[in-house]
Every structure is written in structure tokens, then in C-alpha cells.
Amino acid sequence: MNLFLLLLVELQEATLLVWRAVRHPFRRPLYWRETVVQMDTIGFGTLPIVLLAGFFIGAVLALQTAGTLRSFGAQNYTGRLVATSLLRELGPVLTCILLAGRSGSGIAAELGAMCVSEQIDAMRALGTDPFRKLVRPRLIALMTMAPILTIFANVIGIVGGLVVAITFLQIPSSVYLASAREALNYDDLWGMFLKTGVFGLIVAIVGCRCGLRTRGGTVGVGQSTTTSVVVSIVLILVSDFFLTRLILTLSGTA
């Protein structure tokens, strides 16, 4: 089979995976417990690293751009620049890359280990649909947690920029914050939700698919984990370009 065919097969498998996970949405059991547990591990578990990364990204953004802005005499727009960059690009992309590294890989490893130790087969033999019990909770958790975590990253990033503005750039906090608030608009906001929703979906699908196709023992689990991270990050970056184009067109700024 050539590469193109393989790609097509994977696309089909991924589509099937989502379909099997979302169909019969109200048939019992609903697996609420599993969903809440996943939301907790994915959302709350990733929060510290997202806050840490978000703070320093905002800070370094302010530090890097202030010099250039000063040469145009536009130093007071630092807040706006930091807020817009975070809201539109850095917040969604970096948060979801962190999610891919931390949660997507975890999902691939967990499902992969279950696959090679026949736990998935055992689950099916005991009359449980693994797509509904394992895939759906992770899908829901990632699609809801990605936007929420991004909001946290954006807020803490703006705070990071503020700290730098006050301590290194001698920009008054009122000026920074007023200019940051100017950056907020609805187009950027729904754009962010669209992006993070799609990115969350990508991380979930890639993580689950890589986990469930694991073959070949512990070595296979390692490979699945690596593949899931690489593929999610690449897909996030590529889809980000097209989503940005779409959002700009729809909001009339392009």
C-alpha cells in the first residue's frame, strides 16, 4: 500500500472512531463518571503547566515587542499587542500543544497499554463498547477543557505582560490594561473558541486512534505515544493556518 492509501485509511478510521463514539448519545450507560474523571485529569491536571507557560509567554512577548514599538513611539500599545497575540494565536496553539504533550500522549499510552494487555478485548467480551466508555469521555473532556485552559493561559499571559511592563518597561499598569482591553472583541473571542474546539478534537482523536491501534507490546506503546504527540502537533499547526484564514474571512478583517 502506498502512502496516500495509508493516509486515506487512517482518515477513514479516525472518522469511524468519532462516529462510534458519538452515536446513540442517550443510550445507557452514559458514563458520566468517566467523563468527569477525564475532565478532572485533563483539565485540572494540565492547569499548572498551562499557567506557568502562559505567564512566561505573555512576559516574553511584552519584552520582545516593546523595543520595536518604542521605535515607532507606540510603546503604550504593548498591552494591546500582547492581548491580541495571545487571544488569536499563542493562547490556543500553545495551550493545545501542551495538551497534546501531556494529555494526548497519556491517552495514547493508557489505551495502548490496555490494547496490548488485551483489556480492550476483555471489555468488548464483557459487553462494553470501548468507543463509548473510553473514547467519548476523552473526546468531551478535551473539547471542553481546551477552551477553558486557553482562557486561563490568556489571562495569565496578559498578567505576565503586565508584570514586565511595570518592572522593565516603565509602562503604567493603567495604560497597559486599558490598551489590552481595547484588543478584546467578539470576533477574536469566537475565533478562539472555534480554534480550541477543533484543536481539542484533534488531540482527542489522534490520542485515542494511536492508542487503539497499538500492536507489538511495550515497544508499540512507546511508538504510539510518540506518534500521537508528533501527529497532533503537526495537525494543530497546519489546521491553525486554515482556521485563521477562515476566521479572518468570516470576521471581515481579511
Binding site: 490496555m114 494487555s117 488485551e118 483489556q119 476483555a122 467480551a125
Partner: peptide
């Protein structure tokens, strides 16, 4: 009922 090779218990 199926008994798996290594038990296949849910960890």
C-alpha cells in the same frame, strides 16, 4: 465468558 491469557484484568 472469556478467560484471557494473562487475565486481562482492568488495571
Amino acid at each position: 465468558g472469556m478467560v484471557f491469557q494473562e487475565g486481562a484484568l482492568f488495571d
